[in-house]
Design a protein around this nucleic acid. Structure first.
Lengths: 258, 258
DNA sequence: ACTAGGTGTCCACATATGTGGACAAAAGGG
DNA sequence: CCCTTTTGTCCACATATGTGGACACCTAGT
């Protein structure tokens, strides 16, 4: 069951992050398609709790910096290692494509950090976006670090929807993709979940937690250089983490090195 | 009407900001006093939306950096001028007490930024905290920048509760406090809303928006030096903003200068 | 292997909740 | 100035929602 008013709070947060200026009750109500009275209730709750305020009288409502203060404290406790951020930055510059870090989350992989490509035509993903763990390179790369049991637990519940013409459509296909990825040291996908999107992912274990790093962009731009990209990624990881980072399964990544 | 599930989201956010580590469903349910099934619903909603994830399987849930990403975008749009932040920093060092910036918000004043005192015994306020606008120095300082009509609109709806032994208990008392504050260029309170808390506030107009800056601490430490504090504040404001910042009503602040 | 205690998940019903509509007050236009 | 529009606010009822309890699964300890 989805908790509507909880989702509404999130919607509102995203709304303000989008418009980036105060909005009146009526404005919000219209933009969100909520009844005025319901909007009023939600807004007054947020105001009462100090999460929303009226920067100037009759000038509309806007979130207080309290969101930022709390989010900062939360993020400070689980920081992504600066190494990982540096690595991403490095890869973003080398490849010019969008780079992200993802973690497994049940049947999905969540994006925890992104650096957008600077290309005019690029894939845009936001932090918090989720993709099916078994259908995407990002997800498969995280799965490659799990035990056989964990993987099969995920695949048991997996469903298959044809999102693009590269979508794997059966459990064996996914198992094979993971096996291949483990062998060659990197994972790729092409129009698997997002049509016309191609990407290369490598697994990364930090502090015992399993992540994946992905470099992705429009298929026409990335598809012909996946092995080179994978090699770049591998070398970059080595630069930033040494060799200690690697999951046991990944010793064969070395095969990539010249 | 308070929207319960919206408030629950906020509670959860504050909860994680407090414990700063992943918590299992059962843990959350216990700590929050929510039924397990309700907790489940709320959590799965947040997960589905990419605001919560499971850093490691069976290792509890934790907010994703998406909160931070959104809060950053929101805060970036309405930045408090760096001048104001610098000013606060300056005052915090000079006084050693807690310093905050507040804005009017209906019948309350919201705290938008705080720098905590370094003293062992100090007043602790968080961003987003609200105090009655008519009872506190912070609030009165913001009101002093409003038109006569706006002030009386607020006072018309005002209610009086004796929070401490310095709480003003009638509209005329508040009006007098504002008049006095305008005349001397600063506002003070002592045990008005928080018992044993004393503070000095000065009004501040930035980009046409009305704020107040407050230096506050335990009454025994601050009560005997309020005029000196006010002078320090006034000089600091002059340093950081020049004289242009001042609201028309405040020209008499100059009286403080040596 | 089996139990005990832990986890997350699901569903039907009672109850708490969202909402249409009516309101007052302010803002804007002629 | 009055009239119109738009603002925020309130309430009673119908309806959408939270929740107790039962379940399946997993882990740890005997």
């Amino acid at each position: 069951m989805i908790v509507r008013q909880a989702a509404n709070v999130l919607d509102l947060l995203e709304y303000f992050s989008g418009i980036q200026r105060p909005a009146s009750l009526a404005q919000i109500s219209k933009d969100m398609g909520w009844p005025r009275s319901s909007t009023f209730n939600l807004i007054s709750t947020l105001i009462k709790r100090g999460f929303l305020y009226e920067p100037k009288p009759r000038g509309g409502f806007y979130p207080t910096p309290r969101w930022l203060a709390l989010a900062n404290e939360i993020a400070a406790a689980n920081p992504l290692p600066t190494q990982a951020v540096d690595l991403m930055q490095d890869l973003a510059e080398l490849s010019g494509e969008t780079v992200w870090l993802a973690a497994p989350n049940g049947q999905q992989a969540v994006i925890l950090a992104v650096i957008q490509s600077t290309h005019a035509i690029r894939y845009t993903a936001d932090v918090g976006k989720q993709v099916p763990i078994h259908l995407t390179a990002s997800g498969q790369a995280t799965m490659s670090q799990m035990s056989r049991q964990q993987v099969s637990a995920i695949l048991k519940k997996a469903t298959f929807t044809q999102y693009g013409d590269g979508t794997p459509m059966s459990v064996p296909e996914v198992e094979e993709a993971i096996a291949d990825g483990l062998q060659q040291g990197w994972f790729s996908s092409a129009s698997a979940y997002s049509q016309d999107l191609g990407g290369v992912s490598v697994p990364l274990t930090i502090d015992g937690l399993h992540y994946s790093i992905t470099v992705a962009g429009p298929l026409f731009r990335v598809e012909h250089q996946m092995p080179e990209t994978a090699l770049q990624m591998h070398l970059a990881i080595k630069r930033h983490f040494g060799s200690s980072y690697m999951h046991d399964n990944l010793s064969n990544l070395h095969a990539l090195s010249p």
